[in-house]
């Protein structure tokens, strides 16, 4: 899967979860997205898993630092 495609589908997921358009880049972190806090993190991860049909190990759920790492992981798991 191409990164551009992952980003496009991720933008839909973020819009669904946070109810607003979110501009995403590799360096985007939770601090840059209003509403992306510990309460919403698992909802977001679960929705991404459903969208891409992948399952993140807990190590990545708690360890991913930014959207770039998230995209890398999605590509790795869906390969």
């Amino acid at each position: 899967m191409e990164r551009a495609e992952v980003y496009s589908r991720l933008a839909d997921v973020f819009r669904d979860v946070f109810d607003r358009e979110v501009s995403l880049a590799d360096a985007t972190t939770a601090a840059d997205v209003p509403g992306w806090d510990s309460l919403n993190h698992i909802t977001l991860i679960g929705t991404i898993e459903d969208e891409f049909d992948v399952k993140f190990p807990m190590k990545d759920v708690v360890g991913m630092k930014n959207v770039g790492e998230l995209v890398d992981k999605i590509i790795e798991l869906s390969a």
Partner: peptide, 8 residues
Amino acid sequence: YVFYPLLR
């Protein structure tokens, strides 16, 4: 160790 595992 509780909230995340419960939700997942």
